[in-house]
Computed example of a mutant assay.
Amino acid sequence: MQNPQHSPIRSFGRTGGRPLSARQQSLVDNLLPRLRVPADKEALKTPLQLFETAPQTLWLEIGFGGGEHVSAQAEANPDTGILASEVFVEGVAKCLSDIEEKKLTNVRLWDEDVRELVAMLPDACLDRVFILFPDPWPKKKHHKRRIIQPDFLDALARVLKPGAALRFATDVRSYADEALHRFLQHPAFIWQADRADDWRVPPADHFTTRYEVKKLGDIDPVFFEFNRDG
């Protein structure tokens, strides 16, 4: 167990909200244990074997909110295994509902700090990562809690395959500026933009999230696409 004095700064806020409905609680109690990624580094040496049928590619979505992007991508890409991370129990319950309704077999869930999961994954195992509208921690004194930090980019670079894709999206100007700077400063990530529309217009394979619809940020959403160098 980690020494609390050396634990990483928490990059997320509350993990609970309104009480779950009876159906949601049943899904959390009965379906989540079957789909939860094991906190076992040995088991994660072969992450494709977490799925009923080994997928051809492996993706990771970090902080999936209500899970609508996860379920839409899983449905559109049945040969891809998706590791989906979210600590907010209501979001996990909503995602479980989509998984059950759509009969998805290619999603596995992680409901703890994603940095712990990434640390257990083997080198060069991921073909794609999504970080869509993470908690912006808007107050300047809280910026250190934002998930896009140099050490986390180091961790992602290790688990991404050469040429793998990473998509980061936000609707908070200060986070967009800070995150882009951190990605550009990191030698492992190559920004794929050639013109403004490459970050101002949602990518063709993007599925709109509930968060986007609320328009809570101070700018229109921006989408930064990177490839893992090498």
Results as ranks from 00 to 15, higher is better:
Met1Lys: 14
Asn3Gln: 14
Pro4Met: 06
His6Ala: 06
His6Phe: 11
Ser11Lys: 08
Ser11Glu: 11
Pro19Lys: 15
Leu20Gly: 01
Ala22Gln: 12
Gln24Ala: 04
Val28Trp: 07
Val28Met: 15
Pro33Val: 04
Leu35Asn: 10
Pro38Asp: 13
Pro38Asn: 12
Ala39Cys: 15
Lys41Gln: 12
Ala43Tyr: 03
Leu44Phe: 10
Lys45Pro: 01
Lys45Phe: 00
Thr46Val: 11
Gln49Pro: 01
Ala54Pro: 08
Glu61His: 03
Gly66Asn: 14
Gly67Ile: 03
Gly67Arg: 08
His69Leu: 12
Val70Leu: 13
Ser71Val: 02
Gln73Met: 15
Gln73Asn: 11
Ala74Phe: 10
Ala74Glu: 09
Glu75Pro: 00
Asp79Met: 11
Thr80Trp: 05
Gly81Thr: 09
Ile82Tyr: 00
Leu83Ala: 04
Glu86Thr: 08
Glu86Leu: 03
Glu86Ala: 01
Phe88Ala: 02
Val89Pro: 05
Gly91Ile: 09
Val92Ser: 09
Ala93Lys: 04
Ala93Met: 02
Asp98Cys: 05
Asp98Pro: 00
Lys102Gly: 00
Lys103Trp: 01
Asn106Asp: 08
Asn106Ala: 08
Val107Asp: 09
Leu109Cys: 08
Asp113Ala: 02
Val114Pro: 00
Val118Tyr: 13
Asp123Trp: 05
Ala124Pro: 01
Ala124Asn: 15
Cys125Pro: 06
Cys125Ile: 07
Asp127Asn: 13
Ile131His: 06
Leu132Lys: 06
Phe133Asp: 02
Asp135Thr: 11
Trp137Gln: 10
Trp137Asp: 09
Pro138Glu: 12
Lys139Arg: 15
His142Phe: 07
Lys144Cys: 07
Ile148Cys: 11
Ile148Asn: 09
Pro150Cys: 07
Asp151Tyr: 00
Asp151Ile: 04
Asp151Gly: 01
Phe152Gln: 08
Asp154Thr: 08
Ala155Gln: 15
Leu160Tyr: 10
Leu160Pro: 02
Leu160Gly: 02
Gly163Ser: 11
Leu166Cys: 05
Phe168Gly: 00
Ala169Ile: 02
Ala169Leu: 04
Val172Asp: 04
Val172Gly: 01
Arg173Val: 02
Ser174Val: 10
Ala176Gln: 09
Phe183Ala: 01
Leu184Lys: 14
Pro187Arg: 13
Ala188His: 09
Phe189Leu: 03
Trp191Pro: 02
Asp194Ser: 15
Ala196Arg: 12
Asp198Arg: 09
Asp198Gly: 13
Asp198Pro: 11
Asp198Asn: 14
Trp199Lys: 14
Trp199Ala: 13
Arg200Ala: 14
Val201Thr: 13
Ala204Asp: 13
Ala204Phe: 00
Ala204Gln: 04
His206Met: 03
Arg210Ala: 08
Tyr211Pro: 03
Tyr211Ile: 07
Glu212Trp: 05
Glu212Thr: 02
Val213Ala: 08
Lys215Val: 06
Leu216Pro: 00
Gly217Ile: 10
Gly217Val: 10
Asp220Leu: 09
Pro221Trp: 03
Pro221Lys: 04
Val222Phe: 07
Phe223Glu: 04
Glu225Met: 04
Gly230Ile: 12
